[in-house]
Design a protein around this nucleic acid. Structure first.
Lengths: 192, 192
DNA sequence: CTCGTATGCAAGCACTCGCTTGCATGATCG
DNA sequence: CGATCATGCAAGCGAGTGCTTGCATACGAG
């Protein structure tokens, strides 16, 4: 069904812009180039439509760019960080809206299989591999280290456009710096 | 005026829970124990009332816990990180709501004198002092390093309650780990 | 006491919201 | 062809929204 997808796309975009209350059925219909009645015939209610739309928007192919056998931590982490940041950045609008309304709509709470949770587990497993291989020599909790890198990328992607004055570095340069700092933090540098 | 403050408090709480659209004048009035008409007589319109409420909610006494002359980076940073995290944590609800609605209400954009921006500048200046004093020996951009620590604390405070399964460590322990990692990242450890 | 001011109360207005109903139209398929 | 189905269109309903008006009441200052 092409029409169904057009509706879901319009609903997701409008939700990202204006939130649950702000996304009215009339606007969704107009944005999708569809009559308002069609929404209800397809999805039953506005709530059901938006839940379906957000559910689809959260299904993303998880890029699995961390190697099973670590060789060059800096290169591997830099690539992964770039992928993860770009994913957060392109979806920043929906993420921010959903986070802002979570207390009102706890049914949208990110589950253990959400993209972020999966990425976190992948990174943490990679860090454990680094430790086992002796490539990360500092004493650190893999859980805390994971939150450090992911939190940095998350905050950057969420705030960069709304607090531009705080971000003198371009995304690519900033991510590279983040990774350098992280590499030193976990003792994976070449000079230690 | 005690009544005016009661209204502002109720408005802020309701805004944090339900957003701009969700915070209706009738509910604000009821929560404040005040007649609805009184809101309009005091503030003119719902928009003006909420702007005033959010403006007040963003005025916080900036805890200035970073010393002018750094002595013990770990202790000083740990104390500052704890203060900053607690501030974010107690206000996480309003912050999340405001971030989710920023595209719709750009007039609420955090300015250069927002608490976070001020905290960021303070931290960055402290990092420069560390460098000058030779207490942070790694080569790093103070701007990126600042974003790293602040981003980590920000992400933790914003996500801890809604993705609890990702946070095995208690706040205090987690912050301590963050600071340890940060200390190594900037080369301020005692073992380097 | 008297008067101005602040607040409460009840009613209502114009509008938007989610959603429904009834009917016309066009495409698809046996 | 005829029948079924998906969609569009117009109208509307009940509920909620921001906001206004008119009037009653209390209270403090002169």
């Amino acid at each position: 069904m092409e029409l169904r997808d057009k509706i879901l796309k319009a609903a997701t975009e409008l939700y990202a812009e204006t939130g649950f209350r702000g996304a009215t059925t009339r606007q969704i219909a107009q944005k999708a180039g569809v009559n308002e009645v069609t929404l209800f015939r397809h999805f039953g209610s506005k709530t059901a439509l938006l839940h379906e739309a957000i559910r689809c928007a959260c299904q993303t192919p998880v890029s699995d760019s961390l190697p099973e056998v670590p060789l060059d931590p800096r290169t591997e982490l830099l690539r992964w960080a770039g992928d993860h940041w770009r994913d957060l950045w392109t979806r920043r609008s929906v993420i921010r809206t959903a986070m802002g309304e979570i207390e009102e709509h706890p049914e949208l709470l990110p589950r253990e299989n959400s993209p972020s949770a999966c990425a976190g587990r992948a990174l943490r497993a990679y860090l454990e591999r680094l430790q086992s291989a002796g490539l990360a020599r500092a004493p650190f909790s893999t859980s805390a280290a994971m939150m450090t890198l992911m939190g940095t990328l998350f905050a950057d992607a969420m705030s960069r456009d709304i607090m531009a004055f705080s971000y003198p570095l371009e995304p690519e340069a900033a991510i590279s710096e983040y990774v350098d700092l992280f590499i030193r933090a976990i003792g994976a540098g070449t000079d230690q």
